[in-house]
Amino acid sequence: MKHAQTYQLTVNEMNEFLEQLSKKYDIYAPVRISCGGRYAKDDSIIYQPINTYQEIEFHERSTYPLKEVLTPITQTLFYFTEDEFKESKSPQKDVLIFGRACDINSIKIQDQIYLQNGGIEDYFYKRIRDKIKFILMDCPEQFEGCFCCSVGANKTDMQSLAVSDNNGSAYVGIYDSDFNNYFAKYSAVDHEIQTPLENELKVDYPVIDNLDLANKLKEHPMWKEFDARCIGCGSCTVSCSTCTCFETTDIVYTQNAHIGERRRTCSSCMVDGFDKVAGGQSFRKKTSEKYRYKILHKVYGYNARFHTGPMCVGCGRCSARCPELISYPATLNKLSQAIKEIKGGVQHD
């Protein structure tokens, strides 16, 4: 991480700072939603607009990913009448997002899919993406199942600011000169904000370097167990920092089919109907096939197109959210084993 000027601010000073920022920026951060979790009395943590420092959840991994700020689960693209359309409101202010190193790195992957895939830039993604700056949150406490270091997502230089919560005060590092003037009245302190150097969980991320190997892996028996274990709910892809799939639907207003809106809605390769094509045909009928498709896309398909490594930042949300306790790292280990078998010439029926 490049060296930054760092300041120490009290909570009140942070709130004053956020208030000043809010004139120019909409500020998003992970926020705790009381009782928002899957089970009784469990909370959830979701990216939402904030006004004050105390709203930010520093001490637990957010349930849902940062990508929701850029691509909300339901988003209206435009409204149409018979021969006209009106674009949905684009962000008025610039956008500041609090995120951890993995979260910020995930946006590099989102960028590739939305801006560099097939030579087309997604207009609705770009109109918010161009306005975004990041505030890096450090990770003094890591969470169960974090493995950012195994996929190189523990470091970032995309941040404009970095914030480290320090029990009643905050360290703020400045990486973007646009923010210098906010700190004129403070004197710098000698403190460097760190991102994780090592995780407890180490994943030997599998490498699939050719299509022949990918095709052989498709036939490998390792996927069979997931027919019985995976319920195809899509919790993993919704909570995934890097998954990008959506569906586009025209919603026509009652009584007049010529007036309505075009929406896109987050989708998941794990749920029924995702791969249904005109004529009603589906290509991945068994849950194990859906799961295999998802994993191979993360490990192979994405990298085959962009050559930038795995479609994963090691945030651990997919495993944390799986109601059937399927561990993604455990699947990766099985995949590594299968690759070894195939390369070593082991045959399966």
């Binding site: 939603i33 009381s34 009782c35 928002g36 979790g37 899957r38 089970y39 009784a40 009395k41 959830s44 979701i46 349930t63 849902y64 689960i73 709910c233 899509g234 919790s235 919704v238 987050c266 998941s268 749920v271 959210r321 109601p323």
Partner: peptide, 16 residues
């Protein structure tokens, strides 16, 4: 509350 437990996105949640 089965709808809450089944929901992959937190669209359903239990109130406090």
């Amino acid at each position: 509350g089965e709808c809450v437990t089944a929901c992959p996105t937190g669209a359903w949640r239990r109130p406090a």
